[in-house]
Design a protein around this nucleic acid. Structure first.
Lengths: 338, 338
DNA sequence: TTGAAAGCGTTACCAC
DNA sequence: GTGGTAACGCTTTCAA
């Protein structure tokens, strides 16, 4: 019944139909006060009849902002990045911002280019766990502003939302030491990971403070397979407890241990890191340092929004992971027993 | 040393520096032939010195396209949607397109509005597992074109990349029947899920074809908790095998069964659906119908790209899930034994 | 081959 | 309060 133009209605169409100027239509559509009530009415109904919606691209051009931010992650398949991505997306959506994803696919050499490129299309950028060096990061950041960082310690001039990996691993170590463990192994993350380096620092400090405690570092990685492959080395190490770089590695290790007939936690205790949703559902359920990634994402957004609004961003947040004690850790087996 | 303007260089700046017109700069930057070699040279070096990059927004306005697509998912926390999102993102990135994510947070009422909104900012849209009714979907789709669908059966005029859930559940049923199971339960997904309804059809057809086989349908859901909560009902049902709506539900169930001291698969066999990366690492590893979500995402992109290029999209793809036999399924326990 | 100028669809400044 | 109109930064006819 109603007339339909094939092309989308534009502001001039609405203006013509409402017998006002485009300027007035714009004012009405954007809720600017000071438009006579009857004109508002005419414009609104004209817009409604035409199904008019302003072109976001045209608005972006004149306004100089896109209402979109970009989020760069090293790997979209990693649950912890998925959680922060989700946290950011929801928080940003609540404020009327959209998010563009950029996946660097764990390729460090791509990061700077990808970040620049993503940033050009958006109003701001969040860098999740960038793998590039501190020097590269520092050099890049000015060109990226407004920008915030997650999963990575303080960087001058960049608001940060991160976790205390150092403290988290220390808390795990405390938990294990309390259970009588003295010989431990740490299944290391990739050297390019800043959060891995923080864990290493935490371990070193803890060992220095606790004579009689030893922690061997076993090169490992970030995924199931790598944790699984480390099973043999863990057994040979003679350690009574293993700290995995993250929950994925822990799950791989759990699997290898189970297959080898090694009882967890009776013979070997295992801890993860992150507390991804799956950690609660492993067999046995995984003791891990809980990092609220969704909250980190939300906090990252708060800082970005402040930057976008020209305000002072809240101070850096460093959430302290809390040890979630579950069934994968228990008292150390008697010395000498294997 | 080098001069720096605080604002970004624009096409006119490059033109001035190279002593050519903006039109020529545009032609050079876009690789249009028919520009004298020396001018190309001058423009290129001027652009380089100024660090010039064309404004994507301005280009979008004049070109009428953004080089961006939107992907709407019901829940970013669900591994299978994460996988298709990842597949789409990578495939699109390879073709120079970016992706915007829209999370409907499992709220059906939000879907139409969110889809429209997301679409307006992009050149095209992919709808992952939309929960809205067929009628709503059919009504909405014309306003969304170009659009493709995943996780959902054929819809007139919309290229689709989906899996044969009906066949997948049938294959699982075959596997279980072959192991001697006769009394089964299906832990149902949400009624609004189209793929759940396909599974139901597959079950009905299979039961009709196999007298002596019974499958009870237990209302359940999509997540760990729901699978966990169903543990009690599964035990009481007397079934020797349980088919979970997806891997998450299966993991929850596995956990409940383990806690209750029910041996899997000796007393009860359990199957999942999707074969998310975690399925390989549960205890016992989960038998499941493998859906290559990454590939589905990639195929969705191929269709979208064809649409964007004004070409005929490839025919709908319906991948056939393959049963991944792992340790969570085994021979049915003897009749009467409980 | 090159340049001038007309858009692309808005918003916002400046008059009236 | 309302309406012209100049941007926003680029691409692309149309002439030369």
């Amino acid at each position: 019944m109603r007339s339909r133009t094939s092309a989308r209605a534009q502001i001039t169409d609405v203006a013509a139909r409402a017998r006002v100027s485009p300027a007035t239509v714009s004012r009405v559509m954007n809720g600017h006060a000071s438009v006579a009530a009857d004109l508002v009415e005419r414009v609104l109904s004209a817009a409604d009849e035409l199904g008019y919606r302003a072109s976001p691209v045209a608005r972006s051009l004149v306004l100089g902002r896109t209402q979109t931010i970009a989020v760069m992650v090293p790997d979209m398949a990693n649950p912890s990045f998925q959680e922060v991505l989700r946290g950011i997306t929801r928080a940003a959506a609540a404020d009327g911002y959209r998010v563009l994803v950029a996946d660097s696919q764990e390729d460090v050499t791509q990061e700077p280019g990808l970040a620049r490129e993503a940033r050009r299309h958006c109003d701001a950028l969040v860098l999740c766990a960038p793998r590039m060096s501190d020097a590269e990061l520092a050099a890049l950041v000015p060109a990226l502003a407004p920008v915030v960082l997650t999963h990575r310690g303080p960087t001058p001039g960049v608001p940060t939302s991160s976790a205390d990996y150092r403290g988290g691993i220390a808390a795990l170590l405390d938990h294990l030491a309390g259970l009588g463990h003295r010989r431990l192994v740490y299944l290391a993350g990739p050297p390019s990971s800043a959060s891995h380096r923080r864990r290493l620092e935490g371990i070193a400090a803890h060992v220095a403070d606790h004579p009689g405690l030893s922690v061997d570092v076993l090169p490992c990685g970030v995924g199931f397979e790598e944790g699984y492959a480390a099973g043999e080395a863990v057994r040979r190490s003679g350690a009574t407890a293993a700290l995995a770089f993250n929950d994925l590695v822990a799950m791989g290790l759990l699997s290898a241990l189970h297959e080898a007939g090694v009882a967890v936690p009776e013979e070997v205790s295992v801890t993860g890191f992150d507390d991804i949703p799956f950690a609660r559902w492993t067999t046995p359920p995984l003791t891990t340092a809980a990092v609220p990634h969704g909250d980190l994402g939300q906090e990252a957004w708060r800082r970005l929004r402040a930057l976008l609004d020209g305000e002072e961003p809240p101070p850096d947040v460093l959430v302290h992971p809390e040890v979630q004690v579950r069934a994968s850790t228990g008292p150390a087996r008697a010395e000498g027993a294997a």
